[in-house]
Design a protein around this nucleic acid. Structure first.
Lengths: 339, 339
DNA sequence: CTGAAAGCGCTAACAC
DNA sequence: GTGTTAGCGCTTTCAG
């Protein structure tokens, strides 16, 4: 077998007319068949099906996008492509879009709202019928574009008071607050917050942490970095923390990567967990269950957030705007051995 | 501030004509401006720029997709959205597409070639100018569609002898072979292979492992699962291995997640690494550098694979087909403390 | 159940 | 440097 030459720039891609000519009908009939085979007579249906197969017809969205018909596609914007959280979120979305016959266009913006703006523009240029954003911070221009398009929009992951349109997520501040409050109630007095990347959810969690710490009259200990979150970072933050705050006895980490890195670092330095230092992670990913001691972490229902986001978005696209615009899907502390 | 009502289904999205009318030119002039501002006179340029700003014009790709003009977009197909490897790969691609003014449409198929087929169809329906696939296994229908479209295609990540069109990657079989050979040369005699998901790269690595083991007249020890790879899986595979093969003294893992899980499990059971068991991972991700002992792992140049893939794809799109169709970007054993 | 005509918004090609 | 014309491949609408 030789290397295929597929680059003969000939226009070999079949059109509806090609199929129609083959069958002896007009392209209109073929168009109807493609929309719903039951729209044409049994006899032509069989013949068209055969011709579609033979010609290897490939759907062409451009004309439909032009003819004001809806594109049957939605766009989704993810902060990152290497985070289990957003993979689960996307799976939740697609479980709904697949079932309801919608296409999903995925974009990512690396936690940068200017990049997000460009990606929103790009998705809108494909005439998507709706958009699912992550987070609630967007540029002025992004907001203007969304308004101009007038399509339904869901802001997912975090709860906000004034969504652009619809909102699905959880209260990250409350989640962090509860976790830290639990730690303090158990007797911990020098609890720190380890944050990375400083995106809005990290900041919300920090606010929750602050609220709990201040409520008990304790001191705030923030150890932050702008760097992309990683396992190695946990070690780095712990080392900084132990210098500034030698009596450190508890840590809330903004995610499980950092929490696991912190566990590694503690073990290397023979710091007992949770004897001397308690650790709580965020998201409850598999990695936390694989380490020893098993990580206590805040579970976030991202698959369900994806599902709900897609459901209310498609409903809105199809004209069934729900009364409720904000959906809080909650969180749960999953008990491990680190707290 | 109240909740924005953005759902007044009015056609408020401006068209080129709207801008043209505002400025007092034809939409053709506006079209030229959008393509390259230098194509219109200084005076009109300023006025159009202003009008574009005022109206909040949003690019519409549908007409360009129709007019045989190239869409200036390529599609990329990822097996997974939660793997650092493919995130790096995508970044490599986008470093090139951004610089050269191309849009990227991302799709993912969960390591399932039937899903891949559907996603390919979807990307083609957007008239992408080229496609970057991961892997070299595709359905018959996928191949037919690609042939019908006649667009350039790159198959990335693994090297193959007969690519559809172009191919960029590394020799996974050789990488695994070298690693296992090194282990055996160092005196190890009961080396196992831990695999998950059984995608083609996992299988290639297994072939390389087999070749090395057989070359030395040793016995093959495969411990495999169809499950999605995870940290917890490392523990599970190690436990199975220790039962079947109590004198196990080396492991090649198909990826770092499993390798790290294996390290965790060894530590819990007080199995010394690399004293009793050597471990080599695959991909050399950050997690391996955060654990103790630091993981020895095979580094794969996925960012560079992305870059090269995008470069040769865009070149081909623009008519500069390279002579060389296959690019082997190599690998490297990064020394840690586990071997 | 099927056909004919019009048009979606833009760009290539050709005038001026 | 700018305008005019035609048309991309479908779907909508209206006829039959």
């Amino acid at each position: 077998m030789t290397i295929n030459k597929i680059n003969n720039k000939k226009k070999i891609r079949p059109s509806l007319k090609d199929i129609a000519d083959l069958v002896g009908v007009t392209k209109m009939t073929v168009s109807r068949f493609l929309k719903d085979p039951k729209l044409v007579s049994e006899k032509t249906r069989v013949k068209i099906a055969q011709a579609v197969e033979d010609t290897g017809y490939i759907h062409n969205r451009a004309p439909a996008m032009l003819s004001k018909a809806s594109s049957k596609a939605i766009g989704i914007l993810l902060p990152s492509l290497s985070n289990q959280v957003f993979a689960n979120f996307t799976q939740g979305i697609e479980s709904v879009t697949n079932a309801r016959g919608y296409e999903v266009l995925i974009s990512h913006f690396g936690y940068d709202i200017d990049t997000e703006e460009r990606k929103i523009a790009s998705l809108l240029s494909y005439n998507v019928d709706g958009l699912i954003l992550t987070g609630t911070q967007h540029t002025e221009k992004s907001l203007k574009m969304l308004k101009t398009m007038g399509i339904p929009v869901v802001e997912a992951m975090e709860i906000c008071e004034n969504p652009i349109d619809m909102n699905v997520g959880l209260d990250h501040e409350l989640a962090a607050y509860s976790a830290v409050k639990d730690m303090i109630s158990s007797g911990k007095r020098q609890v720190a917050y380890f944050g990375a990347r400083l995106d809005s959810r990290t900041q919300l969690r920090m606010k929750g942490y602050d609220r709990a710490v201040l409520e008990f009259g304790l001191q705030k200990h923030h150890f932050l970095t702008h760097e992309h979150s990683s396992f190695s970072l946990g070690r780095e933050l712990l080392n900084r923390a132990l210098i500034d705050c030698p009596d450190l006895d508890g840590v809330l980490c903004t995610n499980d990567d950092i929490a696991v890195g912190t566990i590694f670092a503690c073990k290397e330095q023979d710091i007992s967990i949770p004897g001397r230092i308690s650790i709580i992670g965020y998201n409850a990913l598999d990695i936390g269950q694989a380490v020893s001691p098993r990580l206590t972490s805040i579970y976030t229902p991202r698959y369900e957030i994806g599902e709900t986001s897609a459901e209310i978005l498609l409903n809105a696209i199809e004209g069934n705007m729900s009364q409720n615009k904000i959906f809080d899907l909650g969180f749960k502390l999953t008990k491990g051995e680190t707290f």
